[in-house]
Every structure is written in structure tokens, then in C-alpha cells.
Design a protein around this nucleic acid. Structure first.
Lengths: 229, 229
DNA sequence: ACAAAAGTGTTTGTTGTACACCCATGC
DNA sequence: GCATGGGTGTACAACAAACACTTTTGT
């Protein structure tokens, strides 16, 4: 069923950089391309935009289809439009980035014919298209944004010890943080809810668990508070 | 000359929020629409993307065609893709924002049949499409970005007195700044080059002129300096 | 009892903020 | 000589950074 227009139109797609934090490292999710161009190479999950669908919906649909991930934090990154970014034709792509916590969002088994796998940021293979550039920008954006917006919590389970939050910031910012100063700062913000629970199944003293409280955060923000790490 | 594709494609356009600073206020540039939809209403300059052209090039081309502006600071803002943002069909638009200094970039006379005019941010008329939303986001972005990136200089002539820079920040941030603290901070950064010249044609004591030095800024940045106002 | 991580305060330096007067110039 | 804006320094408060030991708990 062909579609005809008065003027030539570039194709439009979405691509998504999915960040996840596991016990070792900050990772990203890649899929092995089943089709040309770049067949067999790893790349970002994504696909063609449809008429009548917002780009965010496209990104979510493709993410669900290709990786099984649903209901994740998703934000627009940048739209890449260089005419030669795709060797076959001019494809413009709206790039998004997603933050997921691996414990609550299991990804479709990587034994899938397509191939889906997590890669540490230092172990990323050669990527298809300009996906390396997209990834680069996503990392930059994450580094920048995590410091003044409370989005880091999206990478953690709902209940977490302060240590895990600190580890997250250290991984993303790429440097060690002082434990006492970090605790002082983050706990004094008044955006974490202290829970009665503590960690379980841990060898040695269990840490208290906290929950990010969006309600508290919204209330503080209304009073002129600015999140900053 | 019609173009046919296997799958339906949304149309793709660019729109541009052009900021300029004049003696009174921070203003934006609008054009009066000559065609349906929203014929006769004011809107952002922009137009359809072409195959083989990057979106930034599209934005620049349309800006030159519609307003006469060339070689301005231009940066991508966000891509708006809601299916109902255009009543005729699904048109996705990559929004950009531009910063120009009015003294060095005269705009095509507003007597042009099309109508091109500057509006203070409090005097913006009802806009076509979702352009009010785009404008809103552009203002937010500008407010945020101007504080940690040296882009404000784009709104000033190459040579300017410190007072003008301060006025710019006050207009954009929407609050008064302390003169002594502002001077201290901005001059101590070491990114402004002090010129031998002073203002001319000014009633009363002439202020010293400065120039933003990208070279100095780049050098400082390499040494870990972070611009912040 | 030992290993491992949790939890906790103080000191010091740096940075932001508030604030008022004299000076140079054009009219 | 007066009106207008240019240019300057200091004191105080708030925040960031550095730093080490005791407590709890599981093995």
C-alpha cells in the first residue's frame, strides 16, 4: 500500500539509549541488527515513526517490541538529521534515553534470535550508523542532568539504601564522593522518605532503606528548592 | 512531481524561536502567516524539511528566506510530534532557538507583505499551531542555559559595556542582580577581554567596553573552569 | 571474635550576598 | 554645577570539602 506526497520526505525514526545499573556497573542495552544496513552489528533499539503516533510513543513501542521493556523513564535527547547518517537514504532520527532499574525490569532473554544484551560503557562494540555519537551525547546529558534533576532514582529499585544512591552517582559522574558529605546533603534535602525496613540477605550490618518521595520533592520545589548534587 | 513510499510518512518541519535584545526588552521575532492553516495569525518562522538537508540547515534556510537573518547562533530545542499539533495532517517539527543582536542583524523591514515583527515577551499575540508551547519551552531553556553556558554574548554587539551584559541577565532571569557582585564575578572569570575603547555618544560618563573571548573561555574550560552566573 | 559495612560531627576554606559612596563626564 | 551612570571593597553568612572513629550485625 504505497503513499504518495507532493514533496520528497525524509524518513523519520527513533532510537533509544537505555541505561541500567546492575551490581557491577552502569550499562546500556543494545540489539543485534537482523537487517541491512549494518546487518549483524550492534545498535540502539528503535524504528520508523508512524503517522498519527507521537515520537515518544514510537520510541516506547519499539522498545517494547525489541527488548520487552515497558513503562520506563523516557526523555527526548536530540534529533539527528545529517543526510549521510544512513547510507541508504536520508533518515532523521529522534533520539531518546531511558533509565531503568534492572531488578524490576527484566529484559527479554538475550537468547532471543535478535540478540539483546547489556554492555558496560567501556565494553561497547562498534555500533551501527551514528549510534556511537548518540550514545556519547546521551552519556553527557545523563551526567549533566543527574546533578540537578532527581532522575537518578529511576535507575534504582523503589527502596534502596543510601549507599546505592551514592554508588550510582559515582558511576555516572566518574569520581568518588565523600560518604558523610553525600549522606548529609541528600538526607537534608527532605526528598527521601525513611522506611522502617532495612536490607535483607546482606552479609553484615544491614542498611536502612529509603524511598524517593515525588510528593515531598514537588512540595519543596514549589518553595524554591533546587535539587543539586 | 510526486514521491511515493512503501509506508506513510509524517511531514517534518522546523520552527525557530528567535530572541533579540533591544534597548527596551528581550523580544522574539514572529511572522504573519500568509497561508492556511492559521492564515493571518502570527507564528514562528519555519518550513518543511528537505531530503538531503540537515534540520539545522532547514532552519537556517527558512530563517533567511522569511526574515533575512543569516549566520546567527542556532541550537536545537526540542522535537514536537503530537499527532494533532497540525489540524491538516501529522507534521512533526524540530524546534530551534536563535540568539541575535539586533544592532548587527537588521531584520527585513516589517512592511514586507508577509509581515515580520519583534514582540516583547509580554506582548506576544495568539500564535498558530502549538507555537505558544514551543515559545514557552524556548524561554525556559534560555533561562536555564544562559546561567551555565556563555551564550548570552550572542545577544550583544561584539563590544559591550558590563552594564549591558548585566541588563541582559536581568531581563532573562527576571530579577535584579547586584552590580558589584555581577562585575566581580564576570570580570574575575577571565573570559572577557578588556578593550581600550569606551562607549561613545552617551550622555554622561562613558563605560569601558569588553569583548567575549572564546579563546580565553576555551583555555579556561580546558583547565576545569565552569561558567556560571 | 572478627570482618564488613553502617552511621555519625567538626573544622576549615571558599563562595555568595548584602550594602553605600566617590568619580568621571556631558550638558 | 548638577545630573547621570561608572566604578570600587568589606563584612557576614552559607555552603562545600576534608577527614576518622564507633556501632551494628552476620559468620
Amino acid at each position: 500500500m504505497p503513499f504518495t506526497y507532493a514533496h520528497a520526505r525524509p524518513a523519520l525514526s527513533t532510537d533509544c539509549v537505555v541505561f541500567g545499573l546492575d551490581a557491577e556497573d552502569l550499562k546500556i542495552l543494545l540489539i543485534k541488527r537482523a537487517l541491512e544496513p549494518f546487518k549483524g552489528r550492534w545498535g540502539l533499539p528503535g524504528g520508523l515513526a508512524r503517522v498519527g503516533e507521537s515520537l515518544e510513543d514510537t520510541a516506547r513501542r519499539e522498545l517494547a517490541e525489541e527488548t520487552g521493556l515497558r513503562q520506563v523513564f523516557l526523555e527526548q535527547l536530540y534529533t539527528f538529521s545529517s543526510p549521510d547518517r544512513n547510507p541508504q537514504e536520508h533518515v532523521i532520527t529522534a533520539a531518546y534515553y531511558a533509565l531503568v532499574n534492572l531488578s524490576e525490569h527484566p529484559v527479554r532473554a538475550s537468547t532471543d534470535a535478535r540478540g539483546v544484551a547489556w554492555f558496560g560503557l567501556t565494553e561497547v562494540p562498534r555500533l551501527a550508523f551514528d549510534h556511537a555519537k548518540i550514545l556519547e551525547l546521551a552519556c553527557e546529558r545523563l551526567r549533566g542532568k543527574i546533578r540537578y534533576q532527581p532522575i537518578g532514582f529511576e535507575l534504582l529499585p523503589r527502596k534502596f539504601p543510601v549507599r546505592e544512591l551514592q554508588r550510582l552517582y559515582e558511576k555516572i559522574l566518574g569520581r568518588a564522593l565523600d560518604k558523610r558529605n553525600f549522606r548529609k546533603k541528600i538526607l537534608n534535602m527532605g526528598i527521601l522518605q525513611e522506611l522502617a525496613q532495612t536490607e535483607t540477605d546482606v552479609a553484615h550490618r544491614a542498611a536502612r532503606l529509603y524511598r524517593f518521595s515525588k510528593e515531598k520533592y514537588d512540595r519543596m520545589k514549589k518553595q524554591g528548592f533546587n535539587f543539586e548534587v
